[in-house]
């Protein structure tokens, strides 16, 4: 994975992904979209993506949700779908090059945030009622942890390009 500035002094970021990375990202983006579309109301991952604005006031909280949820879900789903589509079905060239302007880059940054919020919630959720070590669950958690770290690396690299601190 290469994260770089765009040529010609344009604002934004250029990503070069290995085919496997693109496929992984596309799959993860599809899963984020699914959580937003199909997630049960009591899914704690949805609670991370769509938190209450009034945790101490059930009535105000419900009203805030009523007025904001649809637009928040739409925005997050759109961001996830754009990442999924940009990384889907890469041609066999070995790498996938993606150019993002500032606004498109924001979509990626917020998607990567939502992805990390979901992965953090999913890791180890089954551990509580495990009497014996579950090899499948451990393998799954390793995979989720690796994806979580990788998404953070991608986001951090994008931020270094979009918002260099030594300027």
């Amino acid at each position: 994975m290469i994260v770089a500035g765009r040529g010609g002094g344009g604002e934004g970021v250029r990503l070069v992904l290995e085919t496997e990375e693109a496929m992984l990202l596309s799959e993860l983006a599809d899963q984020v979209d699914s959580v937003l579309l199909l997630g049960e109301p009591d899914d704690p991952a949805l609670g991370r993506l769509l938190p209450s604005a009034y945790p101490d006031d059930a009535e105000a909280s419900a009203e805030y949700t009523r007025y904001t949820r649809e637009s928040l879900v739409d925005g997050k789903r759109q961001a996830a779908q754009r990442v999924r589509d940009a990384t889907a079905a890469p041609a066999g060239s070995g790498v996938v090059e993606i150019e993002l302007d500032q606004s498109e880059a924001w979509g990626w940054l917020t998607f990567l945030t939502d992805l990390r919020l979901i992965l953090a919630e999913r890791v180890g959720v089954d551990d509580l009622d495990d009497d014996e070590p579950d090899v499948d669950a451990e393998t799954r958690d390793d995979y989720l942890r690796a994806a979580y770290e990788w998404a953070g690396f991608v986001q951090g690299s994008m931020l270094e390009v979009l918002d260099p601190t030594d300027g």
Binding site: P51, A53, Y54, Y64, T68, S71, L72, K76, T110
Partner: peptide, 17 residues
Amino acid sequence: MERHVQAMHGYGLQATV
């Protein structure tokens, strides 16, 4: 403030009014 908090939620930050 609700608009700001909604924007923060859009960015994936935990925010309250």
